[in-house]
Simulated assay, not measured.
Amino acid sequence: MISFDYTDGAGVYAGKATRGRSGLRYRRFETAAEALRFAVEDMPGAQQRGSLLEVNEARFDHNQIRALYDAPDYPLSRRSK
Rank of each mutant, 00 (worst) to 15 (best):
E57R: 15
N63Q: 15
A39P: 13
D42V: 04
A32N: 04
R21W: 01
A67W: 00
L53I: 09
R25N: 00
Q48Y: 04
D73E: 13
L24T: 07
R79A: 13
A71K: 00
A32Y: 02
D42C: 11
Y74Q: 04
E30Y: 08
L36T: 04
R21S: 15
R28G: 13
Y26D: 09
D70A: 10
K81H: 08
A14V: 08
L36V: 14
Y6C: 03
S80H: 14
L36G: 11
R27C: 11
M43A: 03
D70W: 07
Q48W: 00
A35I: 03
D73W: 00
L68P: 09
E41K: 00
G15N: 07
K16H: 13
I2C: 04
A46W: 08
Y74S: 00
G9E: 08
Q64T: 10
A39S: 14
G23N: 14
L68D: 04
A35H: 05
A10D: 03
G15H: 11
L53R: 01
V12N: 01
Y26I: 14
Q48S: 04
G50H: 04
E54G: 09
L53C: 05
I2R: 13
M43G: 01
S80R: 10
T31N: 06
S3H: 10
G15D: 06
I65V: 12
R59H: 03
